[in-house]
Amino acid sequence: MSADKISSNETRHIAHLARLALSEAEIEDFTGQLAAILEHAKDIESLNLDDVAPTRHALPIKNVMRSDEVRKSVNREEVLRMAPETQANMFLVPKIIGED
């Protein structure tokens, strides 16, 4: 782990992965702040936890199923009413494949 060596290029890459169009000023700020937070997190690095299993969740629950039956759901018109753009009962987004 090289948490202390986080560079502005690395921050730029993370911003791209997170789909955040950060400004240059934000890239600079976050590079410093992330480094400081990760530096603090280094205290867990020194722990030897090879034999410890991870806890992902506080409850012993997995794969909760329900019976496959038709149930009342949210109202389509109300859902679409809140969308930025819709067409023919669907969410409308900018073109994602091909050219005109």
Partner: peptide, 9 residues
């Protein structure tokens, strides 16, 4: 991963 192990601890 390490953080989740600390959680177990």
């Amino acid at each position: 991963g390490k953080a989740q192990k600390v959680r177990t601890l």
